[in-house]
């Protein structure tokens, strides 16, 4: 593997994630703009679309909260993943932030000194070939509203839905609606929240291939959009652009459900090395 080329690719992905709004998100925003009747809500959606246009053209960050960089790595069976390789990716993320004037939003947690460090890695192995790297800068206006609930194994789907809808309601105007809501069902407490976050990486304008989850996503989408929070909290029909659910096997004694909310500026970029 050519490390120089890899680092260059990672740096470019950092810039792409921060400057170019994802096409699937842009598509849903445009649809919402056409659909929305409320004058102030339309105004807000207009600002959001104009912002995306300026960000792309001027190479300015879509949002000054350039987030904590979360890196999802999927290593295929032909990839020799080493600590050194991970360190090189980490360095490339840091330099990508620096070179593109992206705000160092990371800080030491107690004395709170700002720095570019604090890249978070999640590594998974797959049966496919190649190395997939996803840069996912997560802003904290929405991350602060993450929720986890450890349900009983006998919980009804309706109760789970209620929990997700209440999480979106509590997120409110501070989390920059319209949201994209990620939900993780199953696993352990950490796994449920990770699934909720991973749900935001895939294309959010496509139906879920799992029939049960697709039905759940549709119901949640409808319920959240009847909260009347609307773009920037100005009421209207568009409180969320999409809901995405992922599941994993869990323990017979429980059912963890995690909710990870993304603001309208859902950003990520994936590269194959």
């Amino acid at each position: 593997m050519n490390i120089v080329k890899l680092k260059n690719q990672v740096e470019k992905a950092v810039a792409r994630a921060s400057f170019n709004l994802r096409p699937d998100v842009k598509k849903l925003l445009k649809r919402a703009y056409r659909f929305e009747k409320n004058t102030r809500a339309r105004k807000a959606l207009g600002w959001i679309l104009e912002n995306a246009r300026i960000a792309e053209k001027e190479k300015l960050a879509i949002c000054q909260d350039t987030g904590l960089p979360i890196i999802f790595i999927e290593a295929g069976k032909d990839v020799n993943l080493s600590g050194r390789l991970i360190r090189e990716i980490e360095k490339a993320v840091e330099s990508g932030y620096r070179k593109n004037c992206l705000r160092p939003s990371s800080t030491e947690p107690l004395i709170r000194k700002a720095s570019y460090q604090g890249v978070i890695f999640h590594v998974e192995f797959s049966n496919a070939k190649g190395l997939w790297i996803t840069i996912f800068p997560k802003g904290f206006g929405s991350e602060n509203k993450s929720q986890l609930k450890m349900f009983k194994p006998t919980v009804s789907i309706a109760e789970i839905e209620e929990f997700v809808v209440s999480a979106a309601k509590e997120a409110g105007p501070e989390s920059c609606p319209p949201f994209i809501v990620g939900v993780g069902i199953g696993g352990t407490s950490d796994k449920a929240l990770l699934l909720a976050k991973k749900a935001l990486i895939g294309k959010v304008d496509r139906p879920n291939s799992d029939k049960v989850l697709n039905g759940l996503e549709k119901r949640l989408f409808k319920k959240i959009n009847s909260l009347n929070i609307g773009p920037m909290g100005f009421s209207g029909k568009t409180t969320c652009l999409s809901v995405k659910v992922k599941k994993a096997p869990t323990h017979i004694a429980g059912l963890p459900v995690g909710v990870n909310i993304s603001c309208h500026a859902l950003r990520s970029a994936t590269i194959k090395v």
């Binding site: 912002n51 960050a61 000054q64 105007p173």
Partner: peptide
Amino acid sequence: APAGCGAL
């Protein structure tokens, strides 16, 4: 201010 519109 327009939230999430830092470029604008």
